[in-house]
Amino acid sequence: MARTSVPDVLAAIRGVDFPAGKDRLVTAARAASAPEEVIKVLRGMPSERYANREEVARSVRVDPAADLDHDAAQRIERAREGGRPGLSQHLREEPRTPIQEEFGR
């Protein structure tokens, strides 16, 4: 199974003028002959208007291993920034609280 990364997605939408909607991003990626995995990632985003490339980067779901080229501080900062409310975010495990541990939730 092929994997994609945030830089791959951003490269596919390089020529897009923002703000832009999801449909425009998908169309631009197809016009740029982006790989099918990148198109799938863009189609999986919520139908919102994105103000810039950073909002797109925070909204796409990619393989968690795509961050392997970042150091720990960069990954922490990226996780702290999150995305706009209601948008998809990078999948990550959150630590369980002591109460959740005690009750097995």
Score class of each variant (00 low, 15 high):
residue 84 R to T: 06
residue 96 R to P: 00
residue 72 A to R: 13
residue 91 L to W: 10
residue 26 V to D: 01
residue 45 M to I: 11
residue 86 G to M: 09
residue 77 E to V: 03
residue 88 S to T: 14
residue 49 R to M: 13
residue 46 P to E: 13
residue 33 S to T: 10
residue 104 G to A: 06
residue 8 D to A: 13
residue 14 R to H: 09
residue 72 A to S: 12
residue 91 L to D: 12
residue 57 A to M: 01
residue 103 F to G: 01
residue 23 D to G: 06
residue 15 G to F: 05
residue 98 P to A: 07
residue 81 E to N: 06
residue 51 A to F: 08
residue 63 D to V: 00
residue 58 R to T: 11
residue 71 D to N: 15
residue 92 R to M: 05
residue 32 A to H: 11
residue 74 Q to H: 08
residue 12 A to K: 09
residue 31 A to T: 07
residue 43 R to M: 12
residue 9 V to N: 05
residue 63 D to W: 00
residue 75 R to I: 11
residue 27 T to I: 01
residue 57 A to H: 07
residue 33 S to H: 14
residue 61 R to F: 04
residue 40 K to D: 12
residue 4 T to W: 03
residue 10 L to R: 07
residue 26 V to W: 01
residue 18 F to M: 11
residue 42 L to I: 03
residue 74 Q to V: 10
residue 104 G to F: 04
residue 4 T to H: 12
residue 15 G to H: 12
residue 44 G to M: 09
residue 63 D to T: 00
residue 3 R to P: 04
residue 69 D to N: 09
residue 79 A to S: 12
residue 23 D to Q: 11
residue 104 G to H: 04
residue 39 I to L: 08
residue 9 V to T: 07
residue 90 H to G: 10
residue 4 T to E: 08
residue 70 H to V: 01
residue 74 Q to E: 14
residue 53 R to M: 07
residue 31 A to P: 01
residue 84 R to P: 08
residue 85 P to F: 08
residue 80 R to Y: 06
residue 54 E to C: 07
residue 29 A to L: 03
residue 1 M to N: 14
residue 33 S to W: 01
residue 27 T to A: 14
residue 51 A to G: 14
residue 29 A to N: 07
residue 33 S to P: 00
residue 61 R to W: 03
residue 24 R to L: 09
residue 13 I to G: 04
residue 31 A to I: 02
residue 79 A to D: 10
residue 66 A to P: 02
residue 7 P to W: 08
residue 42 L to Y: 03
residue 47 S to P: 02
residue 48 E to H: 13
residue 88 S to L: 14
residue 46 P to D: 13
residue 16 V to M: 05
residue 18 F to T: 05
residue 69 D to P: 04
residue 53 R to K: 15
residue 47 S to D: 15
residue 47 S to H: 11
residue 9 V to I: 15
residue 84 R to V: 06
residue 62 V to L: 03
residue 57 A to C: 08
residue 19 P to E: 08
residue 62 V to Y: 03
residue 53 R to I: 03
residue 34 A to C: 02
residue 39 I to M: 07
residue 59 S to Q: 08
residue 82 G to H: 02
residue 66 A to R: 04
